[in-house]
Design a protein around this nucleic acid. Structure first.
Lengths: 192, 192, 192, 192
DNA sequence: AATGAATGAGTCTTCATTCAT
DNA sequence: AATGAATGAAGACTCATTCAT
């Protein structure tokens, strides 16, 4: 008997992500997915009940990985600005390295797959929690503009997403000096 | 009758847009589209050769309307900052009033429909031309950070898109005072 | 526009019946069914949601036709024996002319299609109501054995079904004289 | 080890029978069968080449057990009536105790499995041979109606099958007195 | 031009059968 | 011999497109 490989679920999800990033959710075919993962079509159905469940599990899978990545490298005694810089950098790198992830999220929220389930929006909020907390702390210390913190988070993420999108499109790496430049802009935008 | 036809073509395109905004391109069915437009399925095929052409025409249709809107209300002798403020406001309003448009573009660029055509990226660039020119002028006058102007445009649009997305999601109107706040952030970000 | 033919539903049901009688429910393929009815596969799905619904509607359709046929030719002032003879004859003829019907019922009650729905057994009982009422009347008049009337009905139907099955198998017609013989046996079995 | 193997073969056949009785041949899945028998799917294929062979072997297996049961308890010097009564009782009990058997036969003869083999109808006839012989003898002794003996056998079996079916459906036991009643009806039907 | 029923190619999904362990 | 994960052919079902009215 071949052992039911735990890795195979990941393999299938990553293959799906890769295809969706290229063709959009509209272009995901189960047969292509199987080919990409070098499996038989039927095998996919051992690990996922149907296409619907597969897509929804992919969403949760990406949610989970994002959350864990975002706070890495941050020291408790870093300054607020330094923490925000690091977390922004992580966010940017994550968006650049896994542009597929951003693409998937965009697609997912405007799809029949998302609409069929009850809202799972709360989970998305949780990803941004670390950033949100930092903004609150910054406002308390009078370092950050005393504006609705949601707006701050939204705007920062929007800027970073845009930069990431451009970087990926043009296939360029964001150099250290460029990052300094970008964060300068970000910081100017939100500092009080 | 010419008018009648063009009216119906618009009707179909707007119906398509409305469905795509709700369900994504993956969820666009020709029969649903016909129902939304209160037409028979066959009628759609009188105005569009096939689904492919319909989607591509929708893209061009949205392109056209965006470009015309963006520069409205700008006076030649406004200051650079004032011009950028107005154009940004137009961009934001456009994104809020026609959130479907942004959604469509996101979906379109990651879909088999887009991949089948030769790149139309240039067209997108043209929409942003008015903003781009203003940034260049601002840099010449030493008002705006002397950074790659593409980056400036990208970042500003990213911020505004994010705000628009949030506004639409939460179904809130951006008040005048909020707009002052937001543009304050934008301006801080890019001013030299 | 082609008009949605009311007859087409019947056509599909009869085609399904014909196939099921030959191959059993296990052998019913939607593509074969479409071929038998000289339609495209998709057309079947215009009239029936899925295979499941098709089979269940076939059951109800056959139920309905059986009930209406059974009492034909019976006069109110016939004697009980004469009424039972006529109704038995109708039952036998029905079973012989539409052997597919009996086959379908046998198959249906032992199939996933039947098991998935709540019992519709009552409907079957209703078919036999006319016979049942006659038996009761006969018992009241002391013409028929005073035994549980269900048993009488069961046994009579069993006999007739067996005869029908044999007649169909051997492809023979039940002649008038044979019918006299058979009903003689039936009557001997139940008369008091 | 020989015994062990034959034991497992029986186990598989009985499991198949049990499932078929519940869901019909249309509902028999090899994986379900394996589960019912508490074996792995692959194991079934060690004992049976494929599903086809399995079903056909089940047919032969059931054939064999029926024939042996039918004449038990009959003494050479019993009267014809007494012999027919005993054999009818055996037939009824067999039908009631193993209702699955009747169901299987019904299903089998209308299935792709049966159609693929050459006719095995003769085998079925052989089961009924003991009854057939008794009828002939009874006719010779002028005790039974001088009618086509096939008709007599058909009718008797039909009556008994119907009674058995009802008994199983309503989950009731046929008491001794009920049996006297039923055989009374049977005998009235065929006696000359 | 308009309609929507009909079509059938293209997908999704199941399940008999194989095969690595 | 036993296992159950993997396979992929076969069958169910969808939906873009056509066509009779």
């Amino acid at each position: 008997m071949r052992t039911k490989d735990e890795e195979k679920e990941r393999l299938i999800l990553e293959s799906a992500l890769s295809i969706i990033a290229k063709t959009g959710l509209a272009g995901l075919r189960m047969s292509d997915l199987a080919k990409e993962a070098k499996l038989a079509t039927g095998t996919v159905y051992i690990y996922f009940k149907d296409k619907d469940q597969l897509v929804r599990k992919l969403y949760l899978y990406l949610m989970r990985t994002t959350t864990s990545d975002l706070s890495s490298g941050i020291q408790p005694d870093d300054s607020i600005k330094s923490k925000i810089k690091k977390i922004s950098h992580n966010y940017l790198l994550d968006s650049i390295l896994k542009p597929q992830k951003s693409i998937f999220f965009e697609q997912y929220f405007r799809s029949p797959f998302f609409h069929e389930t009850e809202s799972v929006l709360n989970e998305e909020d949780q990803i941004l929690q670390p950033i949100y907390q930092l903004v609150l702390e910054g406002q308390r210390q009078d370092i950050i503009k005393k504006v609705n913190p949601d707006l701050i988070v939204t705007i920062v993420c929007g800027m970073l997403e845009s930069v990431a999108k451009t970087a990926v499109y043009t296939d360029k790496i964001v150099s250290d000096s460029e990052w300094e430049l970008i964060f300068g802009i970000v910081w100017d935008a939100i500092k009080s």
